[in-house]
Amino acid sequence: MRRSRATGSDGRGAQGIGERRLVALAALALAIAIGFLAVQSLAGSAVYYLTPTEAKERGLAAGQTARLGGQVEAGTLRYEPTTRDLRFVIGDGVSRVLVIGTGAPPGLLREGAGAVVEGAFAADGVFRATQVIAKHDEVYEAPPPGATPSRR
């Protein structure tokens, strides 16, 4: 009885099997499209954690987003209140990278402490930071010289 109702006791049910299969196919297509979008976006939004040494070895392309983890080297941290120009050198004991950003540094960014900066290398080899993450350096410590940051 249900079966007869489902197949359309009213006139609209006569629209045919083809159209009904269309529903299933459309849903499947929808799922596949989203899956495709997800996989593609995933590849594009993965941000790798690198040490300055690794970043140099890999020859990270200018403009490619990455996170650099290291230590703010002593005597390099400068914040200019009026222009809000922030610059410091981040190093891992082997390589050093000049980081330039704009805006006030996070509360506890300081020399000798670990920091993670997100951004990309400019053509001149300077790392332009979009984000400086030091507020969680209670949990993050700079990797040892030359080591792969296999854990975080």
Binding site: I34, L37, A38, S41, L42, G44, S45, A46, V47, Y48, Y49, R67, P149, S150, R151, R152
Partner: peptide
């Protein structure tokens, strides 16, 4: 490898 997935992925999807 170590990586993180940022907000752009989630926004885009």
């Amino acid at each position: 490898v170590q990586l993180s997935i940022g907000a752009p992925y989630f926004d885009r999807v």
